[in-house]
Simulated scan of single mutants.
Amino acid sequence: MRYVALVLAAGLATRFGGDKLSAPLEGEPLLFHAIRAARAAPVDRVIVVTRPGVETGEWPGSPRVETLALESRSLSETLKAGIAAEASADGAFVFLGDMPRVPPELAGQLAGTIGSAYAALPCRHGTPGHPVLLSRAAFPAIARLAGDEGAGRLLRGRDDVVRVEWDSPAIHFDVDRPSDLARA
């Protein structure tokens, strides 16, 4: 199976009050933590979907990291652009640019469990988290999304989604406000 990792990072960060992806966490921009988690996935390409002007850094080696800059900031447009950039992949991992604590080994476990399922995702106490691995079968439905919605609505209630129980709050932790950086 050939997978791509998408790091969605085009939001406006209105609750944060500015450019949260460049906010420092442990001496580097918040976004770099999500890129590092995406690079740990079993992929040969990482696509960071962001707005113009966001610094995505230099990432030598494999997997390669590419930037896809969009003027649109809606979640659906960001996700659709990432999928369209690598539509020939067997599946796409979806990472969020403001989730700095995703365990690096989690993506490999999702890849090992997806089989022929529509998607695989981690859950903690029954609550879905990130990253999500979407199979190619999900790509047509992703293309029809609109507005500020991601794949969550498409996955709820499906019996062909693999849910991997993961006992870490990191799969839910995101940075929305400056105070969240202190908790990170």
Rank of each mutant, 00 (worst) to 15 (best):
R144V: 05
S22C: 05
F32I: 03
C123Q: 05
V48G: 00
G61E: 10
A85N: 01
R153W: 01
G11Q: 11
T113D: 08
R51D: 00
P24K: 07
A34F: 08
L96A: 09
I142K: 01
R183D: 10
R39S: 06
S116D: 12
D148H: 13
Y118T: 06
V102S: 05
R163Y: 09
A92S: 11
V43C: 08
P169N: 12
R144K: 12
E165Q: 07
T127H: 06
G57N: 03
L12I: 08
A34K: 11
P178L: 00
P63M: 11
E149S: 06
L79D: 11
P29K: 14
R177I: 07
V175A: 03
A182W: 08
V49P: 00
W59C: 13
R144A: 11
G27E: 07
A151N: 04
D167S: 10
L134G: 10
C123F: 06
P24M: 01
T78V: 04
A13D: 14
V94H: 08
R45Q: 04
I114K: 06
S168A: 13
A92P: 08
K80D: 10
A84I: 02
A37Q: 12
L12D: 15
L12W: 05
F93Q: 08
R144I: 00
D98V: 04
S62T: 11
G53I: 14
L8H: 03
A92E: 12
D90T: 08
L133Y: 15
F93V: 12
A151Q: 07
A182F: 09
G11W: 06
R39C: 13
D176M: 10
P178N: 00
A41R: 14
T14D: 14
V175W: 01
K80S: 07
L30M: 09
L70V: 00
D159Y: 01
P42T: 03
L106W: 04
V132L: 13
G115P: 10
G17D: 06
D167R: 15
I35M: 03
F173N: 02
T67F: 02
S116Y: 03
G150N: 10
F95N: 08
R45Y: 04
D98N: 14
A146D: 02
I47Y: 01
E26M: 08
R51K: 10
P29C: 12
P100N: 05
E28K: 15
L155K: 01
G126K: 00
R101D: 09
W59Y: 12
V54C: 01
I35G: 01
P29E: 11
L96P: 00
C123L: 06
D44A: 13
D174N: 01
G152C: 03
T50D: 00
R124G: 09
V164A: 03
L21V: 05
P169T: 15
G57P: 07
